Amino acid sequence: MGFKLLSKLLVYLTASIMAIASPLAFSVDSSGEYPTVSEIPVGEVRLYQIADGVWSHIATQSFDGAVYPSNGLIVRDGDELLLIDTAWGAKNTAALLAEIEKQIGLPVTRAVSTHFHDDRVGGVDVLRAAGVATYASPSTRRLAEVEGNEIPTHSLEGLSSSGDAVRFGPVELFYPGAAHSTDNLIVYVPSASVLYGGCAIYELSRTSAGNVADADLAEWPTSIERIQQHYPEAQFVIPGHGLPGGLDLLKHTTNVVKAHTNRSVVE
Rank of each mutant, 00 (worst) to 15 (best):
M1E: 02
G2A: 06
F3L: 07
K4Q: 05
L5P: 13
L6E: 15
L10N: 14
V11F: 09
Y12S: 09
Y12A: 12
L13G: 05
L13V: 14
L13Q: 08
L13S: 12
S16P: 10
I17R: 08
I20C: 08
I20N: 14
I20A: 13
V28P: 08
V28Q: 07
D29F: 07
S30E: 15
S30M: 15
S31A: 11
S31D: 09
S31V: 13
S31F: 08
G32L: 10
Y34C: 06
P35V: 14
P35R: 13
T36V: 13
V37D: 15
V37Y: 15
S38G: 10
E39G: 14
E39I: 12
I40V: 15
I40H: 12
I40T: 15
V42N: 12
G43E: 12
V45M: 03
L47T: 09
Y48T: 15
Y48R: 12
Q49I: 11
I50R: 02
G53E: 10
V54K: 01
W55I: 00
S56I: 12
H57P: 02
H57A: 01
I58M: 12
A59L: 05
T60Q: 14
Q61M: 12
S62D: 07
S62N: 06
S62A: 09
F63N: 15
D64Y: 13
S70V: 01
S70W: 00
N71L: 02
G72W: 02
G72F: 05
L73P: 05
L73C: 01
L73K: 00
I74L: 07
V75D: 04
D77R: 03
D77V: 03
D77G: 09
G78Q: 09
G78Y: 07
G78S: 08
D79F: 09
E80P: 03
L81S: 03
L81W: 02
I84F: 10
I84D: 00
A87Y: 02
A87P: 02
W88Q: 00
W88Y: 00
W88D: 00
G89S: 06
A90L: 07
A90H: 09
N92R: 04
N92E: 04
A94I: 14
A94L: 14
L96D: 00
L96S: 00
L96M: 08
A98P: 06
I100G: 02
E101P: 05
Q103P: 06
I104A: 00
I104C: 00
V108S: 00
V108C: 01
T109C: 05
V112A: 06
S113G: 06
S113L: 04
T114D: 01
T114A: 03
H117F: 00
D118M: 06
V121H: 03
V121A: 04
G123H: 04
V124H: 06
D125Q: 08
V126K: 05
V126P: 02
L127F: 05
L127K: 03
A129E: 12
A129L: 10
A130E: 12
A130V: 11
A130C: 06
G131D: 09
G131P: 05
V132L: 04
A136K: 05
A136N: 03
T140R: 03
E145L: 13
E145V: 10
V146T: 13
E147N: 15
E147Y: 15
E147V: 12
E147Q: 11
N149S: 13
E150V: 03
I151C: 02
P152K: 01
H154N: 14
E157Q: 14
E157D: 14
G158W: 07
L159P: 06
S161Y: 11
S162T: 09
S162L: 10
G163N: 10
A165K: 15
A165N: 13
V166A: 08
V166M: 12
F168M: 10
P170Y: 04
P170H: 04
P170D: 06
P170W: 03
V171E: 03
V171P: 02
F174M: 14
F174K: 00
Y175V: 03
A179R: 02
H180I: 01
S181W: 03
T182H: 11
T182F: 15
T182Y: 14
T182I: 12
D183K: 01
L185Y: 02
I186D: 00
I186C: 01
I186Q: 02
Y188G: 01
S191M: 11
S191R: 11
A192E: 11
S193Y: 15
S193V: 08
S193T: 10
V194Y: 05
V194L: 08
V194S: 03
L195E: 00
L195C: 01
Y196Q: 00
G198K: 02
G198F: 04
G198Y: 03
A200K: 03
I201W: 03
Y202G: 05
E203T: 06
E203L: 01
E203G: 07
R206E: 06
T207L: 13
T207Y: 11
A209P: 12
G210R: 05
G210P: 05
G210D: 07
V212R: 05
D216T: 10
L217S: 05
A218F: 10
E219C: 04
E219I: 10
W220E: 01
W220D: 01
T222H: 14
S223K: 01
S223H: 02
I224V: 11
E225N: 13
R226E: 04
I227E: 01
I227Q: 02
I227K: 03
Q228V: 12
Q228M: 13
H230I: 11
Y231E: 00
A234C: 02
A234E: 02
F236Y: 06
V237F: 05
V237D: 02
P239T: 02
G240M: 04
G240A: 05
G242V: 05
G242C: 06
G242W: 05
G242E: 05
L243C: 08
L243D: 15
L243W: 12
P244R: 04
P244L: 09
P244K: 04
P244W: 12
L247K: 11
D248Q: 14
L249M: 13
K251L: 12
K251V: 11
K251Y: 15
H252Y: 06
H252G: 01
H252F: 02
H252L: 03
T253V: 01
T253R: 00
N255Q: 10
N255I: 10
V257C: 05
V257K: 03
V257P: 01
K258E: 13
A259T: 09
N262R: 11
N262V: 10
S264N: 10
S264M: 10
V265R: 11
V266L: 13
V266P: 11
E267P: 10
E267C: 02
